[in-house]
Design a protein around this nucleic acid. Sequence first.
DNA 1: TCATTTATTCGTAAACTTACGAATAACAGA
DNA 2: TCTGTTATTCGTAAGTTTACGAATAAATGA
Lengths: 108, 108
Amino acid sequence: MKAKNNKFTETQQLISKFANALANPVRISILELLADRSCCYHGDLSAELPIANSTLSQHLKVLKDAGLIQGEINPPKTKYCINPENWGLARGLLTGFFDKKIYSYKCD
Amino acid sequence: MKAKNNKFTETQQLISKFANALANPVRISILELLADRSCCYHGDLSAELPIANSTLSQHLKVLKDAGLIQGEINPPKTKYCINPENWGLARGLLTGFFDKKIYSYKCD
DNA sequence: TCATTTATTCGTAAACTTACGAATAACAGA
DNA sequence: TCTGTTATTCGTAAGTTTACGAATAAATGA
């Protein structure tokens, strides 16, 4: 079945959704800081990153909408962490995508 | 050293660059079709994908600029294929990114 | 109650993305 | 040379992203 008829598979859409969340160096930094737990709070991240607070909130929203992180609001602070289930899903999908066999590497 | 001072590392920028190339389901489809060699030419891809030729050219350009594919022009046809070196680089970077240890999964 | 701290939302501007059809280019073959 | 085939580039429109500062919200502590 052609992509033309079905548009795109669920997997293709998920891969592109996760890739989109990773498609910005600020967000890569955020994920690294959260992953190694050197930051947990918005304020911690803000101190490390070269962007305004409001911009940071936007990036956190993108990551949250993609499901890669979760936030726990305890005003006036918000604690963030990696969402382990979706992190694993993203890893599996991306790994699977890149591990596919590439036939006939060279244009010939 | 803080990201704030250095802006971003080379690796962070590379990861986001590759992720950006993957951040669209059309481009995921293109890469899958090229990877399993069911398509090689612009025309083959065009027959499979629900977009105009000119839009396909744009997506191919994004993938080429990211280094994930290469094209060989033999007018009036153009043959495309995966760029194996950069494909391997992207796989390594993305895999490395996701394989990092996640400390203390849960917000607590 | 009022001020402080922390983070988000709002308003806005600039840049980028995605899409299309029309125009163009580049060669093969009649 | 003229025509047909294939793909790219151009021009354009609509929508999205990224960025900032100002305004707002939500609790704590004075």
